[in-house]
């Protein structure tokens, strides 16, 4: 059992987005291009590069962040599993602070099916997004 009493409050994640590309402008604005809920793949296994954007707010303190690709029934099924896509840290000074994180991810898909992208802050899930992996003809 983990002790969460000393941890900062669970932040709110108002956006978790899977997309083709993310660009940060010189004015520190973020452009998010080509949002997706599915990947269409002709041949497995396939190495796919995509982008993820998330926002965190309503938190205060330091957070260890982890982004996983999980099977939809994780962790309740014996066959469920997950794969770490990225890990990092964020420091939220006050609840009003909005932390925006653009990421580029490359991962290997072994077979078509359903999965989800899930974000954890200090071990607590704060957001998840379903993702379909589709097989298409070349």
């Amino acid at each position: 059992m983990s002790d969460t009493s000393a941890q900062p409050p669970r932040p709110n994640c108002p956006a978790l987005i899977i997309c083709q590309k993310i660009q940060t402008t010189p004015q520190r604005l973020i452009n998010i291009g080509g949002m997706m809920n599915a990947f269409s793949i002709t041949e497995f296994p396939a190495d796919v590069t995509f982008a993820v954007h998330f926002a965190l707010t309503e938190g205060q303190g330091n957070y260890r962040l982890a982004l996983f690709m999980e099977t939809p029934d994780y962790p309740n099924d014996a066959g469920a599993n997950r794969h770490l896509l990225w890990e990092g840290e964020a420091s939220l000074r006050a609840p009003s602070v909005v932390h925006e994180q653009p990421l580029q991810i490359t991962t290997r898909f072994l077979a078509p099916g359903q999965c989800r992208i899930a974000l954890y802050a200090n071990g607590q899930q704060v957001a998840r997004r379903p993702l379909s992996i589709l097989r298409v003809k070349a």
């Binding site: 108002p14 987005i17 083709q20 402008t25 452009n31 291009g33 080509g34 949002m35 954007h53 926002a55």
Partner: peptide
């Protein structure tokens, strides 16, 4: 997802949305 930005754009060819210039 709920995102405030300068502009949103729907590509009619792909059906994909893009978000230009997020801000808080």
């Amino acid at each position: 997802a709920l995102i405030v930005c300068q502009k949103t754009d729907l590509d009619p060819q792909t059906g994909q949305w893009s978000i230009i210039g997020t801000f808080a």
